[in-house]
Design a protein around this nucleic acid. Structure first.
Lengths: 112, 112
DNA sequence: TTTATATGGTTTATTAATAACTCAATTATT
DNA sequence: AATAATTGAGTTATTAATAAACCATATAAA
């Protein structure tokens, strides 16, 4: 028996997870899919899909996103057509950013 | 040594995961946070944060969302202020939906 | 109302994620 | 160019997620 997860999660994060779960459930019903149907299509178990719809933070993000994608829940308000384009533009932006950061105050001069 | 995950994940899903990871990384750098900094604030290990930024589908959704929230990546294009409101409205919508669905063709009459 | 199906909530064995560490390579600053 | 810090990637022990049962309840259709 696995111990229940003890990782602290902020309320805002729990809210976002709950919303995603509800959106998936709503989209599933709108497409007239049973939990079993969607689980099979997503390649996951029905019990895992139930936890995803409940907004369980312990689910793998791959499973949750797959379920969302299959029943048409837009991730980041982007549809499939725009996603790859945005990925490319994002990469270009990243090139302009520093590869790493340093602490602003790194050595205090206190020999006086 | 745990076997590598074998769950199939669609390309669209992988793209969405990669985008989220890049957005988190960009936001982290914009806030001048090291991977260690953000990991500590999110209550996760640095190695897990690295996987999240890489878009690994096996990460827990709670860990990924927490990291995103902390460095200000908007989930579902919603900020914290609007999220709880939308959660409420979503619940109201759900009440109007059927609680379960049935297969359309459920019994074929083939005794003739 | 009856019947068949979907769902919610358990349990347990198996599988994979996670934390903590190490080390090499990059990167930013002086 | 030298130095110090960040990052990337790999390893292993521990912990938790997942799949697959099961059953009770709720739900939709006849």
């Amino acid at each position: 028996m696995p111990k229940p997860s003890t990782r602290p999660v902020s309320q805002h994060c729990l809210d976002a997870l709950a919303l995603l779960g509800q959106l998936i459930r709503e989209a599933r019903l709108a497409n007239a899919l049973t939990t079993s149907d969607l689980a099979v299509r997503a390649g996951i178990s029905r019990s895992l899909l139930q936890r995803i719809e409940r907004g369980d933070p312990g689910c793998s993000i791959g499973a949750a996103f797959e379920a969302a994608v299959i029943c048409g829940v837009p991730l980041f308000e982007l549809d499939a057509r725009l996603l790859s384009d945005r990925l490319g533009r994002q990469k270009e932006k990243m090139v302009l950013l520093p590869k790493s950061v340093r602490s602003v105050s790194r050595k205090v001069n206190d020999d006086f």
